[in-house]
Design a protein around this nucleic acid. Structure first.
Lengths: 336, 336
DNA sequence: TTAATATATCAAAACGTTTTCAGAGTCGTC
DNA sequence: GACGACTCTGAAAACGTTTTGATATATTAA
């Protein structure tokens, strides 16, 4: 039923090689023949089969993207930039959403490999042995986006300097006179991002000679509910922190809601600063002060690097570190 | 370099047909041969090439998804449910994000067709002639998710009854004593959803014998900023509405922010109700009362129907209409 | 003129699978 | 001890392209 290149060739009275040549804008075909072929294509409403093309060219123009949770504001924004940049370069994206489910991640890695994707972008950090093993023997290019692979996996990453970012914001809080600084962190066991941000927090405290108070430290999975719950636990302590630094905007908003649900005010009673500078910072009131990650640039550079690798150019860089900055809005006040 | 089925066959000392049989768990292969082949697969770290498989089977297990804007809370949630249901059924999704860009949409339709996707899900309503033409001659199954195609396109859709939903919520507002009811709608020119919701609003007003006041009616593209701007224009009028009904949660939140930025309170000064019941309803304060769309069900049914069609079963239904309901939270007060 | 080159075309091989067909062995049954 | 019914296996065709190599003609250079 579906019309193929052979049908076109017959109708135009030429060989399939010639049709292929006009399809690919090749040289060496007479103008009138070219026109005839084009006419036949039009007449028959022929659409080339890219599966067949991919098979012989060994190129699918497919990028597999693995994300932790695309329903989240940070990932959905990043994904949309990835899609845009990929589409601009004539690549299509296959998306796999694994919600902390490492089996699903491994499965997607395998399926993407079977599908012969030209490359993969991974926006997820948690790993286990099988995944590490898979990744370290994989010959398809992979780049980590807003995440860093464990040492045994040799893939470039594009990211900010998480430790420095956390350090800088805590330092800033100190400079505003804060000394009772709470911290809502991410998972520090397997996730290096979580470790780095926590390390930055600790180091800034140490530099300012502030003792760490475990009453004001909690860890979650970056989602709103965790921020809410952790903040509630802080509110149950004897003394309140003057500011809480959450390592994702979603957790910061959770904390914000917990605070206002408990009839306290931000920033009058407690200041709040988030991380990511995703869209959500401007959807809440007060608007959230947040550590800005250049999401668009992270997404775009991830695909640019990946495409370079796909096209055979060695990545050159092992790690791209982009600038961060604190974006001040209304959730943080100075104590001075 | 990459190992193929032939290499496996040689190493196991069998023919490629036999390897293929064990790959597909076919009958008629001796246990010891099967074991030997499996061993060879393991030894060589062989991964079958699904491109080649797709070519002969004429089945890619690919679903193309076209969305208006995946960075939006409604679409990113829906997309995540679509991904989940697809993956559960061993389908992979290819996503195209077109931001109101109809050329990009047409391009994605064509590319997806070339890629031999088994089916497509479209979460977008705006159309132009070329797209209609394309869709009406397409033989690949398509389902519209949370959207309805124009009459000339014969594809099933899964949706709620938008007109009834708008009607019911406005009716409810009336029953709470509201008579000054503002409306922030979606595009009514090409988008039937927008038309239906507006029609429901108008009909409910008519039924309650309330005159429509154009001062309190505005239309936007469902995003937050539009809700903000439109609400600001309402606030500039002589008289304020007692409640505003926005046809997306994002626009309702925009309206909410406009109101609080102008030092008014929700719901004391103005009540607010949104549409979709997406995650954002619980991230703002006051929590947003919203017309609930069963997002998960919409996403899942879209792929279920699509898969049925892919597998050759006629859709049976032309239109699936799911239940809606108003979810009451804190942004709406009674005037009685 | 002749040789060399550039243009134009086609037949056939290749890509890596699945599937069809036919043939060969193994049973059990009459 | 022959017949049918399974079980097992492999050769070869097919899927729809691109690409290679060969051939033929036209154009240019000497």
């Amino acid at each position: 039923m579906p019309v193929n290149i052979k049908d076109v060739a017959e109708r135009a009275g030429v060989s399939i090689s010639t049709v292929s040549r006009v399809l690919n804008n090749g040289k060496y075909v007479k103008p009138e023949v070219r026109a005839a072929v084009k006419q036949a294509i039009e007449d028959l409403d022929f659409v080339p089969n890219s599966i067949a093309r991919s098979l012989v060219r060994k190129k699918t123009n497919l990028i597999g993207v693995i994300a932790s949770d695309i329903s989240t504001s940070f990932f959905s924004s990043t994904l949309s930039y990835i899609e845009e940049e990929a589409s601009r370069n004539r690549y299509n994206i296959l998306v796999g959403n694994i919600k902390e489910n490492l089996d699903k991640e491994l499965n997607y890695l395998q399926v993407f490999k079977e599908m012969q994707v030209d490359g993969m972008i991974i926006m997820h950090e948690m790993m286990n042995k099988p995944i590490e093993r898979f990744l370290s023997t994989l010959t398809i290019p992979v780049v980590f986006c807003s995440a860093k692979p464990s040492a045994s996996v040799n893939c470039p990453s594009v990211n900010i300097n998480d430790k420095q970012a956390a350090y800088d914001t805590v330092k800033h809080l100190v400079s505003l006179g804060h000394r009772n600084i709470g911290f809502i962190g991410g998972d520090t066991r397997e996730i290096s991002t979580g470790q780095h941000r926590y390390a930055g927090y600790l180091e800034a405290l140490a530099d300012a000679e502030i003792a760490v108070n475990p009453d004001w430290i909690g860890f979650g999975n970056l989602k709103m509910q965790d921020g809410y719950d952790i903040m509630c636990s802080f509110l149950a302590r004897e003394q309140l922190p003057s500011v809480v630094f959450a390592v994702s905007d979603d957790m910061a908003v959770g904390a914000l809601n917990c605070i206002v649900d408990n009839k306290l005010r931000v920033p009058e009673d407690i200041s709040l600063v988030g991380f990511d500078d995703s869209g959500i910072t401007e959807t809440v009131r007060p608007k959230l002060t947040s550590l800005h990650q250049p999401i668009q640039q992270i997404g775009e550079m991830s695909v640019d690097i990946l495409i370079k690798m796909i096209e055979g150019n060695a990545p050159g860089v092992k790690e791209i570190v982009l600038h961060h900055k604190l974006v001040e809005r209304d959730s943080l006040r100075s104590l001075l």
